[in-house]
Design a protein around this nucleic acid. Structure first.
Lengths: 253, 253
DNA sequence: TACAATTGTGTACTTAATACACTATGCGGA
DNA sequence: TCCGCATAGTGTATTAAGTACACAATTGTA
């Protein structure tokens, strides 16, 4: 939470630089140790978490705004970003309104009134991220998808919508390049799919289906050193992967 | 185009009632005589067309705003509406900016500066629509999907995105209830699908696939009177249709 | 009354989805 | 050292879905 002095300063700067009424919220997905993760920030005065977000600069395309916001939180500069929905109920920003209501009159207070938020989800390399807290938070950290904390505003709703959108994307686009390391085994990739879908898949059928997409290359050398049988290593065939991203997998009709 | 006096009045009202920087554009699809149609408005001073649109009232949920805007243009009150994308490049509103730039100083002019537009597409009953032009247009009319006129701003881009979204929806949701009359024949429904997809489908395979969805009821009586063999009449089974809308057709994974 | 146009139905073939079983490798403990 | 266990790789039978065609039925019109 900002002090009154900070709020005045913030409001002044924001009014000068940002498009009013518009915010951006990002659901950043990562994958680590078989778990799907979401990058969250924690408010520094209560036990509530919230999604990385921000506002749109006056002359900035909204997609660029999302990239910029994520750069600030993660340090990453090449990010797979997908706009998935707008959240525009008038009472969705109630918490912020109430929070700063007595501190500053409406006309001066950037957080007064209503914000319409554009939801993006991002798929990022877990190890590439260096989490940076923002001005309102003491902590920026990964949270497990199946152990999500209580969240501010309508952010629970937003991340659930993002997950739905991601699951839908799984049906007609390849996923994984942004979430997996450069080389990985088939069981590892399967774990990613299982983490996103929240259910177990059949090993053998998964392998056949993924291979049929034609977006994987198998290395000559299997991974050595681990316990048990040495698994083959795969990497994404970027040419076919990119093609599948734009073309989509199965037409349906 | 508005006169200076009108522009002053409009700007004043808009500033009082609407959320600034946010607009809504709707791609209204209808179906008639085997042709997919889009409802457009024509500017009254040049040969440019544009999509029905408007702004969001200060205390209004954005979905309601879209419904309200379409009510004003079509007279319809129950409309299938789907938010599909946000268009937020800073230079997308250039035309409006230039158009009224000399007329009124920036601070007073509602159309100065940048608007971020939320795109919706709607599926409506062609015969239910009574097109109402708006303040900026002399004409509100249906245009064939394969004979679209030159359009203002980025509206060509918007309607093409809408069509892409609609085609995607075809793969996991039923379509047709909002576009077809209460009773229809199988070939008629097929023509709708062909119009949306822009390609021919096999009669027999189409029938089997549609019937497999389990969302159609066949009437006892076939349609009489027409030339050729009397076709059966179908109607949508609303219980199963609604269920398919929420559940989706095929999971994929 | 034959014809053209249109509709209804069926069938063979191919491809994808599902369910399940066996073999192979590498480590650790008996 | 060798046996068990966990993990990985591959295969096959069955079912469902998608694709490509062919033929018979109906109805107004020439």
């Amino acid at each position: 939470m900002l002090s009154k002095q900070q709020l005045i300063q913030y409001s002044e700067d924001a009014r000068k630089n940002y498009v009013n009424h518009i915010s951006i919220d990002c659901v950043v997905f990562g994958f680590h140790e078989g778990q799907m993760k979401v990058l969250l920030l924690k408010t520094n005065d209560e036990e509530k978490w919230y999604l990385p977000g921000g506002f749109v600069l006056k002359e900035e395309p909204i997609d660029n705004a999302a990239v910029r916001i994520l750069q600030e939180r993660t340090g990453l500069d090449k990010i797979f970003l997908q706009q998935f929905r707008v959240f525009g109920d008038p009472d969705r920003s109630k918490v912020h309104n109430d929070m700063y209501a007595d501190m500053l009159p409406k006309e001066q207070n950037w957080f007064s009134g209503r914000f319409i938020s554009i939801g993006y989800y991002a798929l990022v390399d877990f190890f590439g991220v260096i989490p940076h807290p923002d001005q309102f938070s003491e902590l920026c950290a990964w949270r497990d998808l199946d152990d999500m904390p209580e969240m501010q505003l309508d952010h629970e709703n937003i991340y659930k919508s993002a997950l739905d959108a991601l699951r839908l994307q799984l049906n007609y686009q390849p996923i994984g390049y942004n979430l997996m390391p450069g080389e990985f085994t088939m069981p590892e990739l399967q774990k990613l799919y299982e983490a996103i879908l929240g259910k177990k898949l059949d090993r053998r059928n998964f392998q056949r289906r993924i291979l049929a997409f034609g977006i994987l290359n198998r290395s000559e050398e299997p991974r050595k050193g681990g316990a048990h049988k040495a698994p083959y290593l795969y990497s994404f065939d970027m040419k076919n992967y990119q093609n599948a991203l734009t073309e989509g997998f199965k037409g349906g009709w």
